[in-house]
Computed example of a mutant assay.
Amino acid sequence: MTAALFPDLVVNGETVPHTAIAAETQNQEAPAGKPGIAWRKAANAVAVRTLLLQEARARGLDPAPAEVGPGRHETEEEALIRGLLDLAVTVAPPTEAEVRAEWARDPQRFRAPPLWEVSHILVACDPRDAAAMATAEARAADLARRALEMPRGFARLAEAQSDCGSKAAGGALGQIGPGDTVPEFEAALRPLAEGEITAVPVPTRHGWHVIRMDAVAEGAVLPFEAVRARIAAAMEKAAWARAARDYVTRLVAAAEISGADLRPL
């Protein structure tokens, strides 16, 4: 793909370098073999960023970059956009009645974390070694097949074949909850029913796992007071996002933009 195929992006008379759009394409999803879609999405994103920066500078804003993580700070442009949105976008916190109505709409959404009793068989390998991963996957697939054929023999199979220290307990990991395991392992747990064994081995940074869900304890529904602050924060965040979109829409409507397709937003 060559940038010459696409029109210049001009925002209120300011021509944006093609290099800025090309850099932004890395952040945009597009079907394989259709780089033009990524370019158009990138042009739209860069147009909005340019418009916000123009507005921030027109207002004479000069906020200091904030720390966004250990040893990480905003860029000057990120600080400018944050400063503008902090100034231009305000929302009122939800009322007590609004928060309670949101909770009452479906209290089942607000539960204590679940607890799982899990056993597994680990076929350990270094995920950076493609050959070792393939060999381990084949072995894990065979173990999954054997476990599914004889579910009651899972503990004996784990004792004989697992590379995890839990083999001494028949592969049992005991009671675990969200955040207690690596994300890939937890993601595989969530859809499992009690007694179910993964038919396809699960890859993690430790190797391949055959997992059995021994028991599931769903978290209890939490009372309103326990989740009030969380619901209020989520509602305020959603309201702020809507207000920010509306603000950008108004800026776009008042701007002269070519090379991007921002109407309607």
Rank of each mutant, 00 (worst) to 15 (best):
G153A: 15
T25F: 03
D8M: 09
G207S: 02
D106A: 14
A4T: 13
P35Y: 03
P201L: 00
T2G: 14
V16G: 07
F185E: 06
E184T: 11
R139E: 12
R205Y: 06
A20N: 10
G83E: 05
A42K: 02
M1E: 12
G207L: 02
E24H: 03
F110D: 10
E67R: 13
T249K: 10
E29P: 11
E159K: 11
M133E: 11
A239F: 07
L173M: 14
D246N: 14
A4W: 07
G165W: 04
P114D: 13
M235G: 04
R263A: 13
M133N: 11
A30Q: 13
A136P: 03
W39L: 01
M133Q: 13
A215D: 12
K237P: 07
L222F: 01
A187Y: 00
P70E: 15
D180R: 07
P201I: 00
H209N: 06
M1D: 13
T95K: 03
M1Y: 09
V68P: 05
V200Y: 03
A104D: 15
R250T: 11
D142V: 08
L61V: 09
P127D: 07
A241C: 08
L115Y: 10
Y247P: 06
H120L: 03
F110V: 09
A64C: 05
I81V: 15
D86H: 10
G259P: 04
H120D: 10
G83P: 02
A140D: 09
A38W: 04
L251G: 02
S119F: 05
G83W: 04
A32T: 14
W103Q: 01
H209F: 05
V123W: 00
V248R: 07
P93Q: 02
P264G: 09
